[in-house]
Each structure stands twice: as structure tokens, then as C-alpha cells.
Design a protein around this nucleic acid. Structure first.
Lengths: 227, 227
DNA sequence: TTTTCTTTTGAAAAAGTTTTAAACAATTGT
DNA sequence: ACAATTGTTTAAAACTTTTTCAAAAGAAAA
């Protein structure tokens, strides 16, 4: 879960930004001015701050300076109106990671947020191959091989396999699987998992028993079962 | 390892530039004024110099002139404050490779450094020929041949092919491809990638299946697929 | 400038995937 | 053995993603 703090005095703009970021799966919080932002940050964490420069009480520049003085390293994207004291705004001096000139397209906003987050939150890429006897799962190429031959899995099947395989030996309830493999805001039926397990087992051929039904609980991946 | 010399009298600015360049994998050194820069260059090599114009003791212009007089060919990006129009022009005529008007965004800085380095440092990896059966991609001459016959690719098609081919086996999302193959500042549609993939496949003829659609994910280049 | 080629976009068609509901089978507890 | 509960299978409907196409916008060349 990636949380973004939106700091702007105009609720309309805040709403607009929130809408587009939430659409991309970010969790948003809002502050109406610099003071509010600072007090929010005292007791809350944020992965990213989007802040307008022109705000009452405490403007964005002052706020950003204060944030950095407090040794909060959260990346900040500043919003500036075209022609607005452009000079001081974009400067490196203030320690912002990027800036966006208003008016901006939602697409640009989202893209910049992603680029900055990519730069600041390098995720450990799990490019490891998982090997279970003749079953090889490669997350980089998004493929699974059985005894050297590629097996065609649908995206959900692959995700499900990767989830279970990377938590081998642990039994998960259908509900938990839905939460983890599907989005956390997916409100589907438990039977959905069953269906995908069936399909996956079908594709796994001789290795179908790697996915173990735990009665009254759910499913687990158990490498010991080969043979 | 690419080394950058940062010349500015303000330690804060130096630090911020350093931070962003180091994040991109460059190795940074600092000098507080022109004199220090020159004495550094006497005994050290640099692949790139970023220098402020306004500095005590020896200003950036004088320093740049002296650097070139000493036959040091290292590319130089000058930093100029807004309004120093004269200096900008003079700087370019005096042998600087680019200039950035302060204040600037980190994004702009990094992008310009990359552009200048690309222009001035021919990379070894770029002189490689990639061979996949009858498909030969030559990044040096910017050409692709199929079974000995040159195929006409548009610039974007070629870039896309090179990117995918040099990361063979790895599945990329359209978004990732846009970020990598298109500019830093391109905020286009995912469909754009699809269209270019289609065109590229069309041009690849019998080798069209080298570019593999990974359902629900994106595309990958898979050399194993040649019939 | 005009022409030509490349790039981008949006919309519709095609291909493929996911979900649901309902019928069926297996397991457990009494 | 029976009822209750839990898991499996099936197939069709709903949904997504990818491909294709055509036209508009943008660059580069003539």
C-alpha cells in the first residue's frame, strides 16, 4: 500500500488528484495547508507528497523547507501555476523531487508520481527462478516449465501459482488467497479460487498434487508431494 | 563507471546535484570554485563537468575557457541564473555542451546529463551486434537485417526492438516499455506500444514471433521461438 | 511551403480470461 | 448409514486484454 499526501488549499483540486491516484491504487490523504500537512506528518507516514506552492497560512515552499529540516525524506512533487514565481519554485535548493506546472493532465500527474516513486522506492525484484523438481517457475519471463516444456498458464493461474509456491507449506483460506492474489478490494466468491485451482492443477499435469487441498481450510503448496 | 565533477560555490546545491546523479549511478566529485576545479582536473579524469557560472575567485566562464585551452575535451554543462541571457549564449560559443537555467528540476538535470553523455561517450555496448538466427541487429549502424537483407525500421521501431532484444526473456509491461523506450517525459497511451509492436512484427516477417505477447502483462522478446 | 513519412490516438473487432451458479462428488461427524 | 458440510466440476455469461484499423497530429524532407 502506497500512501500519498495531497496538500492544496482547493478541495476541488485535491479531489481531482485523489481521484486519479486512487484509480491507480494509491491511498490518498489530504491537507488544506502547510500547517495541516506538517501536523499530519508528525504522526503519519507518507510515501509521497504532492504539494501546491500557493497556500494560505503556510505556503508550499516554507512547508517543504520545514519538512526537510525535520529530516523527513519523503519525495515531494510541487504544483506550480504557470508563470507563478517560477524562479524559486523548481529550484533544487528547496529539495523537491519534481514539479508539475498547473494546469496539468491527470496522465502527466500519474506518470510523474510513478517515475519519482520508482526512483525513490526501488523494490527488490524477485527475479529468482523457483524450482520444484521438474517444475520451474520464472517470474521475470512470466513462464512455468514442466520437465523442460513450457506450460501455458493464464495470468491469474500464474499469479496463483507464484503466490502459493512462494509460500510453500503454508495453508491459506480461499478468502486469504483472494485478498493476496486478487486485489484487496475484490469482493468475489470463494468458488472463484476453486475454479482457478482446478485449472492450474489441470495445467500442472503430473505435478497437480503440489497444490494440496487442506480440508476445512483452503489450499497449500507442498513440494514434498512430488512422485 | 562514469565520473561527474560538480563545480559550484554553494555546498547545498552541490549536494543536491550529487544526490540525484548518484542515484542514477554516476560517481560525483565536487569543487567549490574554478581554481579548485582546474587543479582537480590536473590529476583526475572526469567524464562530465557541471559548473555554475557565478562563482568567487574564478567564475565559470573563465574556468571553461581555461579548461578548453588546456585541451581537456570533457563535456561541460553550465548552470546559469535566469536573466543571464548573455552568458548562456557566450557559454555555448565558448565550448560548453549544454546549459541549464537555475532553478531547474532534478528531472531536467538528469535528463540533460544523459543526453550530453550519450552524444559524447560512445558506449561499448552500443557497438554490439545482436544475432538471433537470421535476424541481426546492429546498434552501431542502426540497422537490422533479416537473412542478409536490410529491413527498414522507423526510429521508434528500432529502439523498441533493441530494448526488447537486449532484455530477452524478460516480460515488460507497456508502461515500463513507455518509460524505457520513449522519453522520460512522454505521457502517452499504452496503445502506442501495441501499434509499434504491430508495425515491428510486420517488418520482422518470419521472425515476427520473436516478440511475444504475455497476456495480462505486456511483451517480451523470446529467441527460443524461432521456427 | 508542400509533401512525405512517422508517431499517436481512439474505436471496434477479435481473442482470451475470469466469474458465477448450479449440479455433482467427497469427507466428516453422529 | 445418513445428514451436514466442504470441495470439485462444468459450461455459459460477463468481462478484459490485445489486435487491428483508420484517421489525425506531428516531424522531417523536398
Amino acid at each position: 500500500m502506497i500512501s500519498v499526501l495531497i496538500v492544496d488549499d482547493e478541495p476541488l483540486i485535491r479531489g481531482l488528484i485523489r481521484e486519479h491516484l486512487e484509480h491507480e491504487g494509491y491511498v490518498c490523504n489530504e491537507a488544506g495547508d502547510g500547517t495541516a500537512a506538517l501536523s499530519y506528518l508528525e504522526s503519519n507516514r507518507a510515501d509521497m507528497i504532492i504539494m501546491d506552492i500557493m497556500m494560505p497560512f503556510m505556503d508550499g515552499m516554507t512547508c517543504l523547507r520545514e519538512i526537510r529540516r525535520r529530516k523527513i525524506e519523503t519525495p515531494v512533487i510541487m504544483l506550480t501555476a504557470r508563470g507563478e514565481e517560477y524562479d524559486r519554485i523548481a529550484g533544487l535548493e528547496n529539495g523537491s523531487d519534481d514539479y508539475i506546472v498547473k494546469p496539468f493532465s491527470p496522465r502527466e500527474l500519474v506518470a510523474r508520481v510513478k517515475v519519482v516513486l520508482n526512483r525513490t522506492m526501488p523494490k527488490e525484484e524477485n527475479n529468482e527462478k523457483m524450482v520444484f523438481g521438474g517444475l520451474v517457475i520464472d517470474t521475470a519471463s512470466h513462464t512455468a516449465h514442466i520437465d523442460g516444456k513450457e506450460v501455458a498458464l493464464t495470468p491469474k493461474e500464474f499469479d496463483l501459482l507464484v503466490f502459493l509456491a512462494s509460500n510453500r507449506g503454508i495453508a491459506f483460506s480461499r478468502e486469504k488467497i483472494l485478498q493476496k492474489v486478487w486485489n484487496y478490494d475484490f469482493f468475489g466468491e470463494d468458488r472463484t479460487v476453486d475454479t482457478h485451482v482446478k485449472m492450474l492443477r489441470g495445467h500442472l499435469g503430473d505435478y497437480r498434487d503440489l497444490i494440496f487441498t487442506v480440508w476445512g481450510v483452503g489450499y497449500k503448496f507442498e513440494p514434498g508431494q512430488i512422485g
